[in-house]
Amino acid sequence: MTDILILTHVDFCPAGHLARVLDQRQLDFTVLRVDLGELDSYDLDRPRAVAIMGGPMSVNDPLPWIASEIAALRHFIRRDIPMIGHCLGGQLLAKALGARVHRMPYREIGWQPLRRASQAANNPWLAHLPDEFTVYQWHGDTFDLPAGAERLLSSPWCPNQAFTWGDKILALQGHPEMTEELLRLWLTDWAHLLDETQSSQQSKTQMLSDLPAKVAALNQVAEGFYRHWLQLAFAR
């Protein structure tokens, strides 16, 4: 076991660029598939940093492992552990903090502009970012803000794109962890979910256009989040 824990829920939503960042820093990490029961025997008092990745399921689905994961997240919250949630991971954090997670009337898919909330001007999670930047999106659910949370980001299609709770929890609706390989995989295996008639979705051509530059910019967004997360976990 290691001090960094990454929770995943399906094989096609891995740690992505987060794993690359940790490898580059020569930091060991543990990846668990929560849906396969791998969290059940894990020592919840061990990790100093936790990342929760995405998945196609809803936090409201009647799956036994979802309740177990939410209970684990609440344990980490009580321990004041730095956590960062990606899409489903952000929704799980919202649910663990008592907020509602619900279906949107459309899917938000593609490279979407995010804008910083006025009250988040000096939030340290956003210190590396301009007031507006782009993040890749693929979701049909969204979260309400938990009591005591601060909204950080909004998009034209989703007003609650990110929140912080306390100084150590960041919940994201988007996917800063994406790599070129992962994005191409999704657009191949899940193309049947795309609907260009929805204004909230980009076409496959739009999403793949100038992809290396888009992913490189996304990597910079992600690395700032991960840098702050690790600083919180390992500050001396």
Rank of each mutant, 00 (worst) to 15 (best):
R103C: 06
F76M: 06
L63F: 03
G90P: 05
R116I: 04
C87F: 01
N123T: 08
P82D: 03
H86W: 13
L73M: 13
G90I: 03
N123Y: 05
R107P: 01
G90K: 02
M104P: 00
R107E: 07
E108D: 02
L126Q: 13
Y106W: 12
Q119D: 15
S68W: 05
I66G: 15
N122D: 15
R78E: 15
G110S: 00
W65I: 07
Y106V: 11
F76G: 02
A120Q: 04
L97E: 07
A121L: 14
P62F: 13
I70D: 06
I77S: 09
I70W: 02
L126V: 10
A99W: 08
L97K: 09
A67R: 12
A121V: 14
A71N: 08
A121P: 13
A96T: 09
A72S: 09
I66S: 11
R116N: 02
A67S: 14
I84F: 03
G110L: 03
L114Q: 12
A121I: 13
L97R: 15
I77W: 14
R100K: 01
S118K: 13
K95P: 01
P82V: 02
L88T: 07
G110C: 02
L93F: 06
G98V: 07
N122C: 10
G90A: 04
A120H: 10
A121K: 15
A94I: 11
L126H: 12
W65H: 10
I109F: 04
E108A: 08
P113C: 01
C87G: 03
I109P: 04
